[in-house]
Design a protein around this nucleic acid. Sequence first.
DNA 1: ATTCCACCGGAATAGCGGGATA
DNA 2: TATCCCGCTATTCCGGTGGAAT
Length: 337
Amino acid sequence: MIVDSRVLREDFVPSEVRHRHDEVSHLSETLEPLLCDEPPETAFLFGPTGVGKTCIARYTLAALREQRPDVRVAYVNCWQEYTRYRVLYRVLEALERAFDVHGSTPTADLFDRLARADERPIVVVLDEADQLEETEVLYDFHRLRHVSPVLIANREEELFAHFDDRVRSRLRAGTRVYLERYRADELVAILEERVRQGLEPGVVDEPQLRAVADAAAGDARVAIGTLRTAARLSSQRGRERITDEVLETAIPDTRAAIRRETIEGLIEHQRVLYELITDAGEIAPRDLYDAYETRVDEPKTTRTLRNYLTKMVHYDLIEARGRKRGRTYRVLEDDAV
DNA sequence: ATTCCACCGGAATAGCGGGATA
DNA sequence: TATCCCGCTATTCCGGTGGAAT
């Protein structure tokens, strides 16, 4: 059934991007100065999850490197690398200049290394840039002529909100590319392409792809994930093709699986909080803190809990209603995406 | 309308673990 | 081996404020 499973993977970059031609050319025009050794403006990609931000960044940079192979690209996911140190480390790693960096190497040394790297241009893609906790690294990149950042985030206001003034004013000028959610027919076209490359002919029909696209609500990541789940389930059950019945389980399974993975990524104390909120349905901060303290042997301070909670809000696991006094926490249901 | 205070979240700091160094 | 130095997490301290209480 499955001919090429890479095609169904999340990080697969297609050889041709569908329905994003304007956005791709906007981004490549922005980066064009690199072709004549000029520093480009900072580029921004904005849009909700699953609209192809990461995909067009990778695609565009791969195309750029075909014209200028000496341009180097460092890809950093700021969910994992959110400190100045870690971002710089990742970039050096991409340049193969991190081999002798160790735990006690100061951050300033990493910056110096990057500054004294050769003059070949470096494009740094900062995915999920709104998760960055130390934004001065953006100032670092701005100071270096040979480093050009590409920032990817969901919403422009949120990204700029936690920049300090220095960074904000530097990045005000910059090219912004906005991506809209896919329409259902666009998702169907994307799925058809993946099916053609990844699955045997005739295992899934057009109405089925339409059903997957509708359930994904404009999110290509969910749509492709659903297709992958359905194909796996079908071959496990020894079927020749994807049946409607398999599809019906695959659709909710995909969202549930994403959620489960997120919860598994939490640390124990965060999971306790999540359970308490789930049990209560809706809970006030004071009650939540009290319940937590009786549940756990060595409770963290409330300040730490607030850090955990804001993290969980970012993960879309829970929702905070109200701002200051009178706030309540509740679990975020899947349909609220 | 005014006061009050529960709660959030920024900034500075302490303590920890781990790798390098002497 | 002991010591130094690093970044990271959790903690302490606290200012600001939205909504409840009066």
